[in-house]
């Protein structure tokens, strides 16, 4: 228990820092940074768009690692982390897709193109949303944790294969935007927002784990009471 309390304290610290960093990033991104000379004001979408994907990568990867650890070690806490990673990943996946298509409309003229990254992230969303739906349909905690861990593992392994298949399918694609090619007034808010989103994702993960832990403990106790009564 001491360890999980320490995690919560770390989470609170990450949350507080996230608020500070979000404030600084918003100020730098919306006020200080000049409009991009090619994309103009649209450039500013990048400060929330790209950090969303960093948070998605982090949380889904956490869900994948926790799922493997659950299959090997069979401790409930890994199941809690996997669940938290998937759920928060879905949230950032949604913000990433919304900002991406709001960026796409004025840039490419359409809200949606079958760009490899866009398509892969949509498949990721469907995969992990399916994972969350699956959890809702299973009652036994051990079976649910095991089945969910397997689904998360397969789903995560599939992501690179989806990416390359869509890339070859759509041979036309935009080169990746890399932060090194843009002006430092634009790099700074981007970096700060990335840190802010990672901190926010960390904070949310710790709270989601706490929730899963409370629910999981309650579920176990209810099962034990049911077994004792019936």
């Amino acid at each position: 228990m001491a360890q999980s309390q320490r995690v919560q304290v770390l989470g609170t610290a990450a949350g507080a820092l996230a608020v500070v960093a979000l404030g600084a990033g918003l100020y730098l991104g919306l006020v200080v940074a000049p409009p991009d000379f090619q994309m103009g004001e649209l450039q500013r979408i990048m400060y929330v768009h790209f950090p969303s994907w960093i948070a998605v990568a982090l949380t889904y990867f956490a869900a994948f690692v926790a799922s493997i650890l659950y299959l090997v070690k069979r401790q409930d806490r890994f199941d809690y982390w996997a669940q938290a990673g998937a759920e928060i990943g879905v949230v950032f996946n949604i913000t990433g897709l919304i900002t991406g298509s709001l960026w796409g409309r004025p840039t490419w003229g359409v809200y949606w193109t079958w760009d490899p990254r866009l398509t892969t992230t949509a498949i990721m969303l469907v995969t992990f949303a399916g994972y969350l739906v699956l959890r809702g349909f299973m009652e036994d905690p051990d079976t649910r944790a095991r089945v969910a861990a397997l689904v998360a593992t397969i789903g995560f392994l599939n992501v690179p294969i989806v990416y390359f298949s869509v890339k070859w399918w759509r041979t036309l694609h935009q080169p990746q935007s890399s932060p090194s090619t843009v002006d430092s007034d634009m790099v700074r808010p981007l970096r700060i927002m990335m840190v802010a989103f990672v901190l926010l994702a960390t904070y949310l993960m710790t709270r989601r784990v706490a929730l899963a832990e409370a629910e999981g403990t309650a579920e176990r106790e209810a099962l034990q009471m049911g077994a004792a009564n019936g």
Binding site: I123, F137, G155
Partner: peptide, 16 residues
């Protein structure tokens, strides 16, 4: 649940 979980994984197979 079966198609919901299976179809996203089948995307590369269908494409190819």
């Amino acid at each position: 649940m079966l198609p919901l979980l299976l179809f996203p994984v089948m995307v590369p197979v269908v494409l190819a």
